[in-house]
C-alpha cells in the first residue's frame, strides 16, 4: 500500500457542462485536502459548485457534465485514472455518499433491508441471510428502534429522520474510509437535524472515517467540521481551519456571508447583505468572480483573476488584498464598522 498523508487531495479539479449554449464551468480549478479521520466542510450558496464537486469526486456526473481536468487523489491514487469498473469497486465500499433528499434517494419499491443488503452482497460477498443480519446490525447502529421489524419495511413507512438514518446505514454498511454527505440535514427539522449530525459525528469516531460535509449552513459547518472550503461561482475562495474561518474570515465573500446570517444566539442590529447576485455561469466576470459584489474591489480585481494565497496559518485565500500586487488601500478594512466575530 502506498503511503499518503491526506486521505483525499483534490488538485485543480475542473468540471464543465457542455450545453447547446456552450460550456458552463461549474467547477473551475478546485483544490483542497482532507487529512484522515477529519471532517471537511464545503460551504457555498446555490450555484457555487459544491454539489457538482461532490458528484465529481465519485464520477457520478451524467451528460452533459464532464470532468475536464485535475486530479482526485484518494489514498494517494488518482481516481480519474480508474476505469468505470474500478470506480464501481470504490463507490459504496471505500467512499460512500448520502444525499439531501432521503425520499428520492431510496428506492420506494424495495424494503430498506434489501437496499442495505445490496451493497453488502456486491462488495463484501455476503449471502442473502448474512447480508440481512448485517443490515439489522447497521439499523441498530444508526439508532433505529426495533430494527428486526424495520428491516422489512418500505421507505414510505418511515419518517424523514428515519429515512436519513437508513441512508446512513446504507452508506456505512461496507465500512467506507470516507463519507461524502451532501446537505444531509437540509430537508430535516432542527431537532431531527441535531440527532442526525450527532449520529454522523459519533459514527465517524467509532469507525475512524473521514467526512466531507457539503452544506449551505454555516452553523452546521461550525459544529461539525475541522476544515472548511468556501466556494463561490465554481471556485474555492477560502480554505481554512474552522476556527480561523469563523474568528477571522479573510475573503470578503466569507465576511459577507457571516454578516448576512441572522443569528438566533445573539442580538443583531441590522443584517449587512452582500449586494447583487451570483453571476450567471455564462457571464462570468473576467477578474475575481466576486469583484462585482465586493465592497473592496479595485481595477486589479476586476481585470485579473487572483490565485490562491497562503497565509501564515497555512490557510488559503483567493483575494488580491493579501498579495504584494494589491493596488487598493493597504489598510483596507473588509469587516466594516464592527467585527462579526466576538466572544
Amino acid at each position: 500500500m502506498s503511503t499518503y498523508k491526506n486521505i483525499l487531495e483534490v488538485r485543480n479539479l475542473q468540471t464543465s457542462f457542455f450545453t447547446d449554449d456552450g460550456e458552463v464551468k461549474a467547477v473551475d480549478g478546485v483544490s483542497f485536502e482532507l487529512p484522515k479521520g477529519k471532517t471537511l466542510g464545503v460551504v457555498g450558496e446555490s450555484g457555487s459548485g459544491k454539489s457538482i464537486t461532490a458528484l465529481s469526486l465519485l464520477q457520478l456526473l451524467s451528460k452533459p457534465g464532464k470532468i475536464k481536468g485535475g486530479e482526485i487523489l484518494f489514498k494517494g491514487k488518482n481516481l480519474l485514472d480508474y476505469t468505470e469498473k474500478q470506480m464501481r469497486e470504490i463507490r459504496g465500499n471505500d467512499i460512500s455518499m448520502i444525499f439531501q433528499e432521503p425520499m428520492t434517494s431510496l428506492n420506494p419499491v424495495y424494503t430498506v433491508g434489501y437496499q442495505i443488503s445490496e451493497s453488502l452482497m456486491i462488495h463484501q460477498n455476503l449471502n442473502k441471510r448474512e447480508a440481512k443480519l448485517k443490515s439489522i446490525e447497521m439499523l441498530k447502529l444508526v439508532g433505529i428502534p426495533s430494527p428486526e421489524k424495520r428491516v422489512d419495511q418500505y421507505p414510505f413507512e418511515l419518517s424523514g429522520g428515519m429515512r436519513q438514518r437508513v441512508m446512513i446505514a446504507m452508506a456505512l454498511a461496507c465500512n467506507p474510509d470516507m463519507l461524502i454527505a451532501d446537505e444531509p440535514t437540509t430537508a430535516l427539522d432542527v431537532t431531527i437535524q441535531a440527532q442526525i449530525l450527532d449520529l454522523i459525528r459519533e459514527l465517524q469516531a467509532k469507525l475512524d472515517m473521514s467526512v466531507i460535509m457539503i452544506t449551505h449552513d454555516l452553523g452546521v459547518v461550525a459544529e461539525t467540521c475541522d476544515y472548511v472550503a468556501v466556494m463561490y461561482a465554481g471556485q474555492v475562495v477560502e480554505f481554512s481551519d474552522v476556527r480561523s474561518l469563523f474568528k477571522k474570515p479573510k475573503h470578503p465573500y466569507t465576511v459577507g456571508l457571516l454578516k448576512s446570517l441572522p443569528r438566533h444566539d445573539i442580538e443583531q442590529e441590522k443584517l449587512q447583505p452582500i449586494k447583487g447576485t451570483v453571476p450567471s455561469p455564462k457571464e462570468m466576470p473576467v477578474g475575481c468572480r466576486f469583484s462585482p459584489r465586493c465592497p473592496a474591489a479595485t481595477d486589479l480585481c476586476r481585470g485579473r483573476m487572483p490565485g490562491l494565497i497562503t497565509d501564515e496559518q497555512k490557510n488559503e485565500i483567493r483575494c488580491w488584498i493579501y498579495s504584494e500586487e494589491w493596488d487598493g488601500d493597504p489598510e483596507v478594512n473588509i469587516y466594516g464598522e464592527e467585527r462579526i466575530a466576538e466572544g
Binding site: 437535524q193 454555516l218 474568528k247 466575530a341
Partner: peptide, 13 residues
C-alpha cells in the same frame, strides 16, 4: 430543546 438544537456559527461556543 428547539433553541438548543440549532447549530451556532461559532466553533468556540
Amino acid at each position: 430543546a428547539l433553541l438548543s438544537a440549532i447549530p451556532v456559527p461559532d466553533p468556540d461556543k
